[in-house]
């Protein structure tokens, strides 16, 4: 059974960067969202295993998505990929249940290392 992946970022380039960094085993069922609201609509409709989530986005930002996932008891692995690298922001996302915080622009080896750490490779 394939792993369902969702990439949420308001930047088309950033979504492509994440998609192209994915290993083949995770790139067969990938959905894309341009903001937090689109991501939540997908997450409430379909079982997603991994969410790659940006933070600074219009409509609903990444923190809003993490909070909504917590409130709705939606369980999945969230990897935050953000340019907002402040230590306090990294703590906030981890407190809200993210598996890992990755700096933008995403690096293929770091992404894969994190996927491996959390049992997806």
């Amino acid at each position: 059974m394939s792993t369902n992946v969702l990439i949420c970022d308001d930047s088309n380039l950033a979504r492509k960067q994440v998609f192209r960094s994915l290993p083949e085993s995770l790139s067969t069922d990938v959905q894309l969202a341009k903001n937090g609201q689109e991501a939540l609509d997908i997450l409430r409709d379909k079982k997603i295993d991994i969410l790659f989530l940006d933070l600074t986005m219009p409509v609903i930002d990444g923190l809003g998505v993490l909070q909504a996932l917590k409130d709705d008891n939606i369980e999945l692995a969230v990897f935050v990929i953000s340019a907002d690298v402040q230590p306090e922001m990294q703590s906030r996302v981890m407190d809200l249940g993210a598996k890992a915080f990755l700096r933008k622009p995403v690096q293929l080896d770091i992404l894969n290392e994190n996927l491996k750490t959390h049992g997806f490779l």
Binding site: S11, L13, A14, T56, S82, A83, D84, V85, Q86, K104, P105
Partner: peptide, 11 residues
């Protein structure tokens, strides 16, 4: 996106 990354590190 380039600006976003730069802004994040400046902040």
């Amino acid at each position: 996106e380039l600006i976003n990354v730069a802004m994040g590190q400046a902040s």
